[in-house]
Design a binder for these strands. Structure first.
Length: 486
RNA sequence: GGCGCAUUCGUCUAGAGGCCUAGGACACCUCCCUCUCAAGGAGGAGAUCACGGGUUCGAAUCCCGUAUGCGCUACCA
């Protein structure tokens, strides 16, 4: 075991481009990044694209895009394992010469049949090592038949390997429960086990921080390091992020990729804060931490062991907090793309920036995500508002008094010279009294008339932003509606 | 089936033998503020610390079993 003082911290995020990175992957990336930044070390990005068949087009772009969006900058890479085949072959060759591996000619069909047989007999499915002790002659024969072999590792039959995990402590695995795993596939590409060990060593990775689903294969890696006579890195297996059903998070659980959250209007800084708290905590009360605080305090010994269900409600709350903390300009800048995309077609583009500013100042503290900004504010941008006439009438407001109230309001507002919130309030509040209506009923009526909805930003400010002309027009329209229905 | 890991309020978590009649946060409920909605403030409900045995004067914390969940068990990563 080496000390942290002598070895510079180098960690890596090594996703495979077999799909878009989901929250679990990204959380692993975040922890690696935080660990690197905390220790002043390096964060390396490596793409593990050794599975040609499962490769997904565009996945690398999403990986890069996700990291960029969250601000997880890397110091080296991306390295692509698909471009390092020669290295893996060389080292596999060395392993073969040193007697740590052997070629296996078994067909997929035979392996499948073997596994079925084992399952039937309730035996653990494991390669039966048929090719491990082939005679020279048998080997030559198989070689001549044109079969391209895979290369397997000679796992010791006896003994055990103990993995020293920084989070879980010592975990022992009996060699008898491991099988002769494949190092080189018949297509010439290495398996994860080989490529991962070689690259981590060659790239001088000091700490491997990865999901706990890798814990079971770590003894194989440790065995490989031993065979190569290399010093293994330190391991830390991170707890899993679970779906609401407590199963490993996947596409089945709906929004699982980080890009989904970007589209749903979450702020990257909120996302980082939230993800950091999934499996890590500072103390018994701190929930909100800036990126700098996260870097300053992050440590492996405060990483938990238990899988965490992703709690979207809490994310929403946290996102709201971050949205409210933004300066108005900043908020407008972030909301603009969502408005552009989310507002009805009928709204004239480009949006008037000054007007957007005024509107945004009214809903900044009300929105929990950027994606809900358009629906929260569309009435500010539309020419007319549609709503159910019934909304105008409350429990203590009949049609006649509503008509009366709006008519009076229209009169009072017609001549208002300085259309601003305080003046509107100065005019309308006394009016409620005159009309014998509660402010609740009266302002509620006006709110529906002017915005088309029962929940909106404060009435007077809303009216100020909407402007005199639009307000009067909508008030008149409400009057029409009421007259028509009576 | 085998191997491994995990198990504290619905959820995220604090807790590293006495500070715990278990703390915080989200969600939920009530009240206050109030023109509605948010935000904010004050309260509330919510966990026999999976269960059973030990160890100890004393256990959520240590040990051993059991149960449950999850992961791995591929020429996937």
């Amino acid at each position: 075991m080496h000390s942290e003082l002598e070895t510079p911290v180098r960690v890596r995020f090594a996703p495979s481009p077999t799909g878009h990175p989901h929250l679990g992957n990204i959380r692993a990336a975040l922890f690696n990044w935080l660990f690197a930044r905390h220790h002043g070390g390096k964060f390396v990005l490596r793409i593990e694209d050794t599975d040609v068949a499962r490769k997904v087009e565009g996945a690398v772009d999403t990986i890069v895009g996700s990291l960029r969006w969250l601000g997880l900058d890397w110091d080296e890479g991306p390295y692509f394992q698909s471009q390092r085949s020669a290295t893996y072959r060389d080292i596999a060759h060395r392993l073969l010469q040193e007697g740590h591996t052997y070629s296996c000619y078994c067909s997929a069909e035979r392996l499948e049949a073997m596994r079925q047989e084992q399952a039937k007999r309730k035996q653990p499915p494991r390669y039966d090592r048929r090719c491990r002790n082939l005679s020279q002659q048998e080997r030559a024969q198989l070689e001549a038949s044109g079969i391209t072999p895979v290369v397997r590792f000679k796992t010791p039959h006896e003994g055990e390997t103990t993995v020293h995990d920084l989070i879980h402590g010592a975990v022992a695995f009996k060699h008898a429960t491991l099988d002769d795993f494949v190092l080189l596939k018949s297509d010439g590409y290495p398996t994860y086990h080989l490529a991962n060990v070689i690259d981590d060593h060659l790239m001088a990775i000091s700490h491997v921080l990865r999901g706990v689903e890798w814990l079971s294969s770590t003894p194989r890696h440790v065995l490989l390091y031993g065979a190569l006579d290399w010093q293994p890195p330190l391991f830390a297996h991170l707890p899993m992020i679970l779906g609401p059903d407590r199963a490993k998070l996947s596409k089945r659980h709906g929004a699982a990729t980080i890009i989904d959250y970007q589209e749903q209007g979450y702020l990257p800084e909120a996302m980082v804060n939230f993800l950091a708290l999934l499996g890590w905590s500072l103390d018994d009360h701190t929930e909100l931490l800036t990126r700098e605080e996260l870097i300053e305090h992050f440590s492996l010994d405060r990483v938990g062991k238990t899988g965490a269900i992703f709690d979207k409600d809490k994310l929403e709350w946290m996102n709201g907090v971050y949205m409210r903390r933004l300066s108005l300009d900043e908020f407008v800048g972030r909301a603009l793309p969502f408005l552009d995309r989310g507002l009805p077609e009928s709204v004239q583009r480009p949006l008037d920036e000054g007007y957007v500013h005024q509107v945004m100042s009214l809903i900044q503290e009300r929105a929990r995500t950027l994606a809900e900004v358009p629906e929260l504010t569309d009435f500010f941008f539309l020419d007319d508002v549609q709503y159910d006439t019934d909304l105008l009438l409350g429990k203590d407001l009949d049609t006649q008094s509503a008509i009366n109230a709006i008519t009076t309001t229209l009169h009072s507002l017609q001549g208002v010279a300085h259309w601003d919130a305080s003046l509107l309030e100065a005019v309308l509040r006394p009016l409620a009294k005159e009309l014998g209506l509660s402010t609740r009923a009266f302002f509620g009526l006006l709110r529906v008339a002017v915005t088309g909805r029962t929940a909106a930003p404060p009435l007077f400010q809303t009216m100020e932003v909407l402007g005199q002309e639009k307000c009067l027009r909508r008030l008149s329209a409400a009057l029409q509606l009421l007259s028509g229905s009576s």
